[in-house]
Amino acid sequence: MERLLGNPRAVLVLLGPALLVYSLVMLVPIVWSLVYTVYEGNAVSGFEFVGIDNFVRFFNDPTALEAVGFTLRYALILTVLQVVVGYALALLYVFFLKKASSLVRTLVFFPVILPTVAVALLFRRFFEAAPTEGPINSIMEFIGLNTFDWFGQPDASFWVILMMDLWRSMGFYAVLLYAGVVEIPEDIIESARIDGAAGWRLVRHIILPLSLPVLLSATIFSINGTLKVFDSVVALTNGGPGTSTTPLTVYMFQTSFSFGQYGYGSTVALMLTVMCLLVTIFIFRASRRDLTRNEK
């Protein structure tokens, strides 16, 4: 029996195809991409060895550094918004709507599965100023404000992207965190209630500490997703006005495919990967320190 479930030929037949495809299309290109970082050129024109020039260029390239700044700012703010709003919704589901929350949960989750391109094109019209006024500008005008060109100004564009992505994803984080909050044993909450904890105090001292693990995994998942933002930006602002809302992903795409600089594009991609790793490790370590402090 053990011999049958450990049959090497069967392992090869069942695992082989998946491992082969995965290696050829993901692992090999990852290594290949690392090699590209010391070259410049593209598939059509050929390559030339340039050493560490691409990295020197990256750290002296104002557009690249602006992209790093945008990516970090966007990822940090959106992660906080997603986790905080998602957690607030989760608490609403568990403690206010209780058994009746299923319908609300399902409805608020719906935008999650919509194609980002469709949502972004819709939000573009929603915030439009010209040639027609979108609903947002019409409402602003109605309550006596001036209409505003949301996509003509870096800060406003930044916040429209954030609002849209929050709209798209809050239902997801709500359900994710709901699963964590609903698992907190009823008797712990009940005994805290008997001890006189209620409302904010109950949340702060009992529920929040008990949902830290799920909050941590939600945060890590969120930051890894938001650092890789691409669709929303491309379809909503296409990086503009100017390059003010260009994240690293979009900058990588432009340098690679608009300008045909594979070496520099790969360098930008590598920087993005390093950033994802560093941020994840940082959150892990910070949270561990936090957890041990709570234990003392």
């Binding site: 290109p29 990852i30 991409s33 590209y36 598939a43 890789k228 690679s256 790969s266 930008v268 991609a269």
Partner: peptide, 16 residues
Amino acid sequence: GVMIPLQMILLPLFTI
């Protein structure tokens, strides 16, 4: 493979 940004594999794949 779940963690690596897709940007890392696009250029080599394009060449291939």
